[in-house]
Design a binder for these strands. Structure first.
Lengths: 215, 215
DNA sequence: AGAAAGAATGAACAATCATTCATTCTTTGC
DNA sequence: GCAAAGAATGAATGATTGTTCATTCTTTCT
């Protein structure tokens, strides 16, 4: 009996071969979406690979283990944020300290950083950091780096503006804690607080500290 | 053959019967310790019941499901915090607004609330709240309640002190976000920031806003 | 064109988890 | 003391998960 085998077969997706780095990024992106959608504890290798449009084996081929994939995902998000900060900190096209400060605020509470995806990932890892030293190390390294940069910037602003009775270190801790808290407020209770509202709160904080540098 | 059966038996713990409410609290306490120690995603019915010194079946007997146990644990921690705030807010033994404000700060950054256990539990649930509507509802209800109370208090302080150009609502959001961020800083990077340091940061925030009410 | 290299697959496996329930044990009311 | 009520147990179950690896499929190089 003759049969049109190819016609009766369900469509089979053609397998594509792509370089390792591209697959890794594809899987990291899928992991971010899964964590935001299902939460860290319900993010499985199945959901991630399905989200990425790949198979189970591919994830282990490129990341060896789930643990490693999660670590690399946290590292990616962390680096992305740090590089965004650094780019503004070191940018030479900005003349005034006030302009730099304003740009930093725009970045930290801007649309790129305050996407639900990104914030959900941050706090998913923060929530587990207490029990997982690896997460804690990555997160605290990021926080320390940011704190040092802001402290240096605030030092310059204090010198520039002749502000008195202000401690740059304490202000940096306060400002960065405020930003973290505002992210959390945006993530958990989106009805009470708009992004513009959060921006206004942070701006008011900086205005209180440096009235001659922030409107 | 005669055998000293009772002597050769390993010691068997005598089973104790306790009322339902006591067992529930015992299991909730164990859940808090497990979340702080193992993280939410590694907290299993096994680890919780072992930590509580009870058997697997007991947990399901009193809570029906793991999901329910986790919800009740979040509710307990939330209520504990809310009642602590309310007790100070409604206390009649405090004469001045300044004193009340100071007590609230002491409570929010005091030793009871800033135990590692408690903070780890907060952020474990916050981290999953993006994906679990139940957690989000409980958390956001707490946040809204706290924000309203602080807004009312700040309104009184503004009227009392004749402060101008300050918005009570915005200040309340800022202050509570700052507290959340400081908790996170205490939990993740305990070396950079002491509890006294965190308290100083929050105090500075309030001093900037209400210089005649906070030292 | 042909073959070597290695990327991709997913069924199968072993481990772990929440949940069930027949049984055992305490307490309480009489 | 005795029996009823129901609290406590933990082995067994079924579902889910991370990981493996024999096989299939693409691409590249000669």
């Amino acid at each position: 009996m003759f049969m049109a085998v190819t016609a009766s077969e369900p469509e089979r997706k053609r397998r594509k071969i792509r370089p390792r780095s591209e697959r890794r990024q594809q899987l990291i992106d899928a992991t971010i979406r899964c964590i935001a959608h299902y939460g860290l504890s319900s993010t499985t290798m199945q959901t991630v690979t399905r989200e990425a449009g790949l198979s189970l084996g591919t994830a282990n081929l490129h990341f060896d283990s789930k643990e490693n994939l999660l670590n690399e995902t946290l590292l990616f998000v962390t680096n992305e944020y740090n590089e965004g900060l650094l780019a503004i900190m070191n940018s030479e096209g900005i003349a005034s300290l006030a302009g730099r400060l304003s740009l930093l605020l725009d970045f930290q509470l801007g649309p790129s950083v305050t996407q639900r995806h990104k914030m959900a990932v941050w706090f998913a890892y923060y929530g587990e950091a207490g029990a997982r030293p690896v997460y804690q190390k990555i997160c605290s390294r990021r926080d320390r780096a940011a704190a040092q940069r802001f402290e240096a910037l605030f030092d310059s602003i204090i010198a520039d503006g002749g502000y008195e009775n202000v401690d740059a270190k304490q202000l940096a801790i306060g400002y960065l804690s405020l930003i973290d808290g505002l992210w959390l407020a945006l993530l958990i209770g989106p009805k009470d607080l708009s992004k513009a509202g959060a921006r206004a709160v942070a701006q008011a904080f900086l205005h209180q500290a440096f009235p001659r540098h922030m409107a």
